Amino acid sequence: MGQKGAETRDRLLDATQELVETAGYFGTGLNQVIAVSGAPRGSLYFHFPGGKDQLIGESIRRAGRTIGDTLEEQAGTSPSPAEFVEGLLRHLGDRLAESGWRKGCPVATVALETAAVNDPLQEVCSEVYASWEAALRARLASRADADDLAVTVLALVEGALLLARAHRSRDPLERVGRQIRTLLD
């Protein structure tokens, strides 16, 4: 694929990610993706012959890698597991506040909307969550309960993001951060 094709594909994925994070799976239409991306309709079907589900699945994987990169950055700069998670919560809180409380987790909305009815998208959401859980587990590897703690921390972060978005406040993220510190120290 040439540079222009790659740029068009990236624009389609950027637009999809933006729309899915703010409106969810059912609130995101292909006409909206085309309008937001500025890409021709034919490009959408050329790059994503599987249609909406392929487009959304790839945008979720891409968003998942972005959060995964943040996990790696935090792991490299945080001396303790608690500081690692607190740094992640700060980053996600900044992202949420900067978006006007519209962008929480890039996976959660689609997971909630489609997990029971759309196996391919459920698998993508599961894959992304599993990668984040693995990153958390790696940072907690010195603990005998690293597997359980990784799931617990991920669930606390996800819940805090949901509450922060609903309340339009960082307070749930800060409270969860304090409890995670207690749990990990």
Rank of each mutant, 00 (worst) to 15 (best):
G2P: 08
G5K: 13
G5H: 12
G5A: 15
G5L: 11
E7S: 13
E7P: 04
E7V: 12
T8P: 04
R11P: 05
D14M: 06
D14F: 08
T16N: 06
T16H: 03
E18S: 12
L19K: 03
E21D: 09
T22F: 09
T22P: 07
Y25P: 01
G27K: 11
T28N: 09
G29K: 10
L30A: 05
N31E: 15
N31S: 15
Q32H: 12
Q32R: 14
V33A: 05
I34C: 05
V36N: 00
G38K: 08
A39Y: 01
P40T: 10
G42R: 10
L44C: 07
H47D: 05
H47N: 10
P49W: 08
Q54Y: 04
Q54L: 08
I56W: 01
I56C: 02
G57F: 01
S59E: 02
S59I: 05
R61M: 13
G64Y: 06
T66Y: 13
T66S: 15
T66L: 15
I67D: 00
I67F: 12
G68A: 12
D69P: 05
L71W: 08
E72R: 14
E72L: 13
E73Y: 11
Q74D: 04
S78K: 04
P79Y: 01
S80V: 09
P81Y: 07
A82T: 05
E83Y: 03
F84N: 03
V85R: 00
V85P: 00
E86D: 14
E86F: 03
E86G: 10
E86I: 08
G87H: 07
L88A: 04
L89H: 02
L89G: 03
R90C: 06
H91Y: 15
G93Y: 02
L96T: 02
A97N: 07
E98P: 07
S99E: 02
S99P: 05
R102V: 04
R102H: 08
K103L: 12
K103F: 10
P106V: 04
A108R: 15
V110C: 10
A111Q: 11
L112H: 10
E113I: 07
T114R: 14
A115D: 08
A116D: 11
D119E: 15
Q122E: 14
E123I: 01
V124N: 00
C125K: 03
C125I: 06
E127H: 11
S131T: 13
S131M: 10
E133V: 11
A134C: 04
L136V: 07
A141C: 06
R143F: 06
D148N: 10
D148V: 14
L149Q: 02
A150N: 01
T152E: 14
A155R: 08
L156E: 08
L156I: 09
V157I: 15
V157G: 00
E158R: 12
E158S: 12
G159H: 07
G159N: 04
A160E: 00
L163P: 02
A164F: 03
A166Q: 10
A166V: 09
E174Q: 11
R175A: 11
R175P: 02
R178G: 14
Q179C: 10
Q179F: 12
R181K: 10
R181V: 07
T182S: 14
L184F: 05
D185L: 12
